[in-house]
Design a protein around this nucleic acid. Structure first.
Lengths: 359, 359
DNA sequence: GTGAAAGCGCTAACAA
DNA sequence: TTGTTAGCGCTTTCAC
């Protein structure tokens, strides 16, 4: 590999001059600068990033640690982060922790060892240990979830989103919403459950809910249990889109029609939710914006322009009313009636589809 | 930051000994080794990865460059890569090129500058320039697509997959399949189009097709054009799942039912395809396996165990027959008949749902 | 088995 | 404006 010394020799200048030219330092005579560029080009010189990092004890790379690459929410977040990073000459590397604490720890370790310029983290637990990072002076921004350690963070209001989703079901005449949420040791799952509880409690309705492991076909089983438990559930609030996918599959298997046999609102506006028949009403988080805001906080923090006190940005969610939450028939348990097929009725409501009722 | 020298002083040994202990070199007296570990632990020493990289002129990080994080095909690939990487003590960083050649070039440059241990690339063009990488001796594995430069590569057979999808439509009594595929300068879009053409040509049927830009609502417009062109199209082969999403949206907007008003087979088994009513028949690629195999090739190549001649692995695709490709009525253009609603008929076919007709 | 010392390629402080 | 030089923290010969 060609190094800076080779270029210096070839251009008959010192390595310092080469370094200056290549780093856009203006204080070099144009003649020399041109000679350096020539030499570099002829030799096919490529600056050694590792050496630069070594010298600066810093990289131009951010680690974005998310819990699930297959979740559209996080891929949108990633795009937001990437766009802002790019504007600021940072590269983003995506790390997939799979909600597994060991993987998260491992990525945190790598980020620290490789001296990432900054880290954006979706923590599995609110008490995650980030002392390695802070001890190394690596700026951190937490996204999506609450966090015990005081650091910059950006998230949407899960409690409020869940509360509104549940209220929306009640407003549409569903009498007993149940909640399917993530595992009991997940703070965000609990927060959404709490929002649900607040809404049903206000209405004087008992809370019916079920915790489900991330992945693992959990959503389907959970729904089955709810339905077979004999509890008078007539509608569902599903706390994330991955669960909603499984729940929808189970509904289809059971030939239950959302909006008719069962009301439904899901968290996160996954691309497929509008495609189903009937389409799924959702609570949309400003995913891209969460990523972009987090990235902006990180840029400021790295530049040392941020206030000492950590900033917390809580964004609003949006209820997107589609068909799954709107009662298609007046009386419940009436699905075997001779009524015309439900999709005929869809077009009337199609006008309202996609309406965003911002909070 | 604590460095190796601090540890050496504290343990009253040389830095060489510290390095040996921390790298698992056995030739150190147990007493000293213990003293070193103690000191390191007490001081909270964290090895500086950059310095090690500098010394070794190499990292333990792979760059996985894909064209779209939001495409489930690629996230599955990523999981395959990650799992194998982890087994071999490599970290994977995901880079999102968005099918934009400049971004791809940029990530390639970063990978080279930061001396990635290896690169796995989904190239936008088959003639992408990877000379920087090869000049630096960084191993490269190309996935998903054909590539001009001879390097290790893993992909599924797009031509054959597309041919089979189209043939499947014909076998099910559809008389004029059309093809909606990616942009005309995308090799993989052309390959799938070629597979489609082969099938219709064999059947003596004219080819009707449309090229669509990645993203940008292309699928919907494209379908509209096809339908409004007056051509006698009765079925669709859609060349990837992102387009299929848009096409499905347009179908819904037009209240057209796949499998009844229009036959449809899509490329890639995206999670939502089975959820739609009717569910979408697809050509499934072994995405996880493509990632895993590519990772294995990379491991071997890095270890110097690979043969000089590049290896190319072409995996088979699988046709998953669901409802969108199977004619729900005998006569076409009959959708306004008094026939019972189509979803009632679904349960009969549900038994066959998910059957995998392996090639 | 252990330590001294030579760099890896670059940036930046300091000298000229 | 340009060059000289001292490291950044680590691994790895090479002596001992």
């Amino acid at each position: 590999m060609i190094n800076i010394r080779d270029v210096a020799e070839s251009a008959e200048v010192s390595i310092a001059t080469v370094s200056r030219v290549l780093n856009g330092n203006e204080t070099v005579a144009p003649v020399l600068a041109e000679r350096v560029r020539q030499a570099a080009s002829v030799l096919g010189y490529r600056p050694n990033g590792i050496a630069r990092n070594m010298r600066r004890q810093q990289t131009q790379v951010w680690a974005l640690i998310i819990t699930d690459v297959t979740n559209p929410f996080f891929t949108s977040v990633a795009r937001g982060v990437e766009d802002v990073a790019q504007e600021n000459d940072y590269s983003v590397v995506l790390c997939n922790s799979d909600e597994i604490i060991e993987k998260e720890t491992q990525y945190l370790k790598v980020a620290q060892q490789e001296r990432a310029a900054g880290v954006i983290l979706t923590p599995r637990y609110s008490h995650a240990d980030v002392s390695r990072l802070t001890a190394s002076g690596i700026p951190l921004v937490v996204i999506d979830r609450k966090f015990d350690t005081p650091v910059d963070s950006v998230r949407a209001d899960s409690f409020e989103g869940a509360r509104r989703a549940t209220q929306h079901l009640l407003d549409n005449g569903w009498t007993q919403p149940a909640c399917i949420t993530g595992p009991v040791d997940s703070d965000i799952a609990l927060e959404r459950l709490a929002g649900y509880r607040a809404a049903v409690s206000d209405a004087g309705i008992p809370a019916v809910f079920s915790h489900v492991a991330f992945h693992a076909e959990g959503g389907g089983h959970s729904l089955s249990e709810l339905l077979e438990s004999g509890q008078p559930v007539d509608s569902l609030f599903v706390a994330n889109s991955m669960l909603a996918l499984e729940v929808s599959e189970e509904l289809k298997r059971r030939e239950l029609v959302a909006g008719k046999d069962l009301g439904m609102v899901a968290y996160d506006d996954a691309p497929w939710t509008r495609l189903l028949t009937p389409s799924i009403s959702v609570i949309a988080q400003p995913a891209y914006e969460i990523g972009a805001q987090a990235a902006r906080l990180l840029v400021e923090r790295i530049a040392g322009l941020a206030p000492a006190t950590p900033r917390t940005i809580v964004l609003d969610t949006t209820l997107i009313q589609r068909d799954s939450s709107v009662r298609a028939v007046t009386s419940v348990g009436n699905r075997k009636s001779g009524r015309r097929r439900s999709s005929d009725g869809l077009s009337e409501r199609a006008v309202a589809r996609g309406d965003r009722l911002t909070s």
